[in-house]
Deep mutational scan, measured.
Amino acid sequence: MSGNGNAAATAEENSPKMRVIRVGTRKSQLARIQTDSVVATLKASYPGLQFEIIAMSTTGDKILDTALSKIGEKSLFTKELEHALEKNEVDLVVHSLKDLPTVLPPGFTIGAICKRENPHDAVVFHPKFVGKTLETLPEKSVVGTSSLRRAAQLQRKFPHLEFRSIRGNLNTRLRKLDEQQEFSAIILATAGLQRMGWHNRVGQILHPEECMYAVGQGALGVEVRAKDQDILDLVGVLHDPETLLRCIAERAFLRHLEGGCSVPVAVHTAMKDGQLYLTGGVWSLDGSDSIQETMQATIHVPAQHEDGPEDDPQLVGITARNIPRGPQLAAQNLGISLANLLLSKGAKNILDVARQLNDAH
């Protein structure tokens, strides 16, 4: 009898209710805020589980004197976190989706994509230029951005401005803007500013005609071990179906173009009346040469937790077992079709030249 009692006690200790789920994140304040929001949602869904947040620095956090596009290494903000995932030191990792490459290392998958916040870019102005827009900034004003995508589009749109690289986390960039006289304004992701509670610093939100956004911008991705079915089931509740389908289309477009950090590629997606609209573009580094096109596809946005595919093969690095396969494939095909259209119009040449120029500098 006593033996059975011990077995029952052991089973209770090993039951999922007692389990601590370890969540990996970057150390920056924004990353911690984003991770806290994901953990809060998981806690609400699984009140019996405990969650421990483990923060670590990544290569991208450490190399702050070089433009991201020049470092010449993929997975700048993800490699150390993936290493911890691989060694079973954490069970899942919360990322900004735009930091996750469209091809993940073997053994990993994006197990959830959370509801997207505003994906557009924002302009934050130096205190002396508050009330201005990019259009009304004085001639030769210097605007800071760490992104080739932003610089290429904005140089084309605002030729009277000069664009220079600015690195560091959000706090560091804002301090550089406010305390030094080098920059009249800087460009940042609206979602990051909003998550930090800095709505009052948003001086201008850039519309798609001015600057399309990065693939996955404004959404959070939760990376897990691809074979860890328990954790895949656990994080599945975080999937937002519309965000998922938009981001599958965007990531398929980028992957098929073979774009990345070192080339200016941008997108804009919208879901309306059962249609998914995808606009994508590529630019030369100075913005003088560009190709942009829009395509659409009829896609039914499923309700969360309709029964999805059981075999769960990944699409552009994403596993969404609780979302039907048909809409996911339709979104992926839309991204591939748009990429093929741009490639047929000469996108590869623009991107190759951009890559060579970026590598040469």
Rank of each mutant, 00 (worst) to 15 (best):
76 L>Y: 07
22 R>M: 05
35 T>W: 05
38 V>T: 12
338 L>H: 01
100 L>W: 05
227 K>A: 15
110 I>E: 04
250 E>H: 01
221 G>W: 01
285 L>V: 10
69 S>R: 11
64 L>T: 12
200 N>D: 14
279 T>M: 05
199 H>P: 15
340 N>G: 11
116 R>M: 03
292 Q>E: 15
158 F>H: 14
32 R>V: 09
204 Q>R: 09
181 Q>G: 11
36 D>G: 13
283 W>M: 01
46 Y>G: 06
352 D>K: 10
169 N>R: 10
195 R>A: 04
218 G>H: 01
296 Q>T: 05
239 H>A: 12
286 D>F: 07
212 M>H: 14
222 V>L: 14
267 V>S: 05
277 Y>H: 15
150 R>Q: 01
214 A>G: 08
275 Q>L: 01
90 V>P: 01
206 L>C: 10
341 L>K: 12
45 S>R: 11
161 L>K: 09
244 L>Y: 14
102 T>N: 11
230 D>P: 11
109 T>G: 01
85 L>R: 01
129 F>E: 15
119 P>A: 12
143 V>C: 14
118 N>K: 08
264 P>C: 01
123 V>H: 03
223 E>C: 15
152 A>M: 10
85 L>T: 06
276 L>S: 03
317 G>V: 06
134 L>S: 01
155 Q>T: 11
80 E>S: 09
234 L>W: 11
139 E>P: 01
65 D>E: 15
154 L>W: 07
206 L>E: 01
85 L>W: 01
314 Q>I: 07
291 I>K: 13
69 S>V: 10
113 I>F: 01
325 R>E: 11
261 C>V: 01
171 N>D: 14
31 A>S: 11
23 V>G: 01
210 E>H: 01
298 T>Q: 08
225 R>P: 13
118 N>F: 10
248 I>R: 04
166 I>N: 08
342 L>C: 05
267 V>R: 01
52 E>M: 01
41 T>A: 11
152 A>F: 04
352 D>E: 04
295 M>Q: 05
125 F>D: 01
224 V>A: 07
234 L>S: 03
330 A>N: 13
80 E>I: 09
226 A>I: 07
84 A>Y: 08
195 R>M: 01
115 K>V: 09
101 P>S: 10
125 F>I: 13
95 H>A: 09
277 Y>C: 08
250 E>W: 01
124 V>H: 01
171 N>G: 11
28 S>N: 01
212 M>K: 01
97 L>D: 01
98 K>N: 06
173 R>C: 01
148 L>E: 05
133 T>R: 13
237 V>Y: 04
92 L>H: 05
310 E>F: 01
20 V>K: 14
223 E>V: 05
346 G>S: 01
221 G>P: 04
85 L>D: 01
328 Q>E: 13
131 G>F: 10
355 R>K: 05
109 T>Q: 07
279 T>H: 05
281 G>D: 01
138 P>G: 08
70 K>Q: 07
284 S>D: 05
193 L>G: 13
191 A>E: 01
301 V>C: 08
302 P>M: 13
256 H>K: 06
42 L>R: 01
264 P>W: 03
41 T>K: 09
130 V>Q: 11
342 L>H: 15
286 D>E: 13
111 G>C: 01
113 I>H: 01
353 V>I: 06
134 L>K: 01
237 V>F: 07
350 I>V: 13
26 R>P: 01
227 K>F: 03
113 I>K: 01
321 R>W: 01
55 A>R: 10
338 L>S: 12
343 L>M: 15
352 D>Y: 14
208 P>G: 13
271 M>A: 03
290 S>I: 15
226 A>W: 15
224 V>S: 15
297 A>V: 07
242 E>C: 03
68 L>A: 11
344 S>C: 09
158 F>I: 12
217 Q>A: 06
53 I>C: 07
298 T>L: 07
43 K>W: 09
20 V>E: 06
171 N>S: 12
233 D>T: 08
103 V>T: 15
164 R>P: 07
272 K>R: 10
83 H>V: 11
255 R>S: 11
47 P>Y: 06
161 L>C: 12
311 D>A: 15
155 Q>E: 10
232 L>G: 13
171 N>K: 13
262 S>N: 15
216 G>I: 01
342 L>I: 06
126 H>E: 13
53 I>W: 05
48 G>A: 13
133 T>E: 12
147 S>C: 05
141 S>L: 10
40 A>N: 07
181 Q>N: 06
294 T>N: 14
335 G>I: 01
142 V>E: 11
133 T>N: 14
211 C>F: 15
253 F>C: 01
292 Q>M: 13
163 F>A: 12
130 V>K: 07
51 F>T: 13
205 I>E: 14
354 A>L: 04
168 G>A: 01
36 D>T: 11
54 I>V: 10
122 A>W: 01
53 I>E: 07
239 H>T: 14
50 Q>R: 11
144 G>S: 06
174 L>H: 08
51 F>P: 12
95 H>P: 01
205 I>Y: 15
170 L>R: 01
56 M>L: 14
230 D>T: 01
136 T>N: 12
146 S>E: 01
162 E>Q: 07
73 E>H: 15
177 L>P: 01
41 T>V: 05
149 R>Y: 07
231 I>M: 13
320 A>S: 01
360 A>K: 01
306 E>L: 14
27 K>R: 15
333 N>S: 01
205 I>V: 12
45 S>P: 09
121 D>V: 01
155 Q>S: 13
277 Y>K: 04
299 I>V: 12
206 L>P: 05
131 G>T: 08
104 L>V: 09
143 V>Q: 04
164 R>F: 09
240 D>R: 01
83 H>E: 13
111 G>I: 01
103 V>Q: 15
201 R>H: 01
329 L>P: 01
343 L>Y: 01
322 N>I: 08
178 D>M: 11
200 N>F: 15
200 N>M: 10
218 G>P: 01
289 D>K: 04
139 E>V: 08
62 K>N: 15
233 D>C: 11
108 F>A: 01
187 I>S: 07
274 G>K: 08
143 V>H: 03
193 L>W: 01
140 K>A: 11
87 K>V: 07
245 L>P: 01
175 R>M: 13
67 A>E: 01
195 R>V: 04
239 H>E: 05
202 V>R: 09
82 E>N: 10
229 Q>C: 14
308 G>N: 13
50 Q>C: 01
297 A>E: 05
232 L>F: 11
250 E>I: 01
44 A>V: 13
329 L>M: 15
355 R>D: 15
336 I>A: 07
225 R>A: 03
150 R>K: 03
182 E>V: 15
265 V>M: 04
93 V>P: 03
104 L>P: 08
52 E>V: 12
256 H>C: 12
277 Y>G: 04
55 A>M: 07
247 C>Q: 01
327 P>N: 01
340 N>C: 01
102 T>F: 03
59 T>V: 07
118 N>C: 13
200 N>T: 13
118 N>S: 14
262 S>C: 03
130 V>M: 09
309 P>H: 10
354 A>V: 05
79 K>A: 10
213 Y>L: 03
145 T>M: 07
33 I>Y: 15
304 Q>S: 14
145 T>N: 04
94 V>F: 04
355 R>L: 10
310 E>Y: 01
138 P>A: 13
112 A>C: 14
69 S>Q: 12
130 V>T: 09
177 L>M: 12
102 T>S: 13
298 T>P: 05
221 G>D: 01
187 I>W: 01
323 I>L: 14
275 Q>G: 15
103 V>I: 08
254 L>R: 03
119 P>R: 04
105 P>R: 10
48 G>W: 10
79 K>D: 10
147 S>E: 04
259 G>T: 13
58 T>E: 10
353 V>A: 09
286 D>H: 09
49 L>N: 03
279 T>F: 09
71 I>H: 08
88 N>I: 11
305 H>G: 14
94 V>L: 08
129 F>I: 08
263 V>E: 13
120 H>R: 13
296 Q>A: 01
47 P>C: 06
88 N>S: 11
235 V>H: 01
169 N>V: 12
220 L>Y: 09
103 V>M: 11
198 W>L: 12
261 C>Q: 03
188 L>T: 11
226 A>Y: 13
82 E>C: 06
197 G>W: 05
238 L>N: 01
226 A>V: 12
207 H>T: 13
167 R>G: 09
126 H>Y: 06
270 A>N: 04
359 D>A: 15
83 H>Y: 14
87 K>C: 12
341 L>V: 10
96 S>G: 10
188 L>F: 08
221 G>N: 01
104 L>G: 08
191 A>T: 09
282 V>G: 07
338 L>A: 15
178 D>K: 04
208 P>H: 11
293 E>Q: 14
20 V>M: 11
146 S>D: 05
172 T>N: 12
56 M>E: 12
62 K>I: 15
178 D>V: 10
89 E>M: 08
142 V>S: 10
288 S>P: 12
196 M>N: 09
223 E>Y: 01
276 L>R: 01
79 K>E: 12
173 R>G: 01
260 G>V: 15
288 S>V: 12
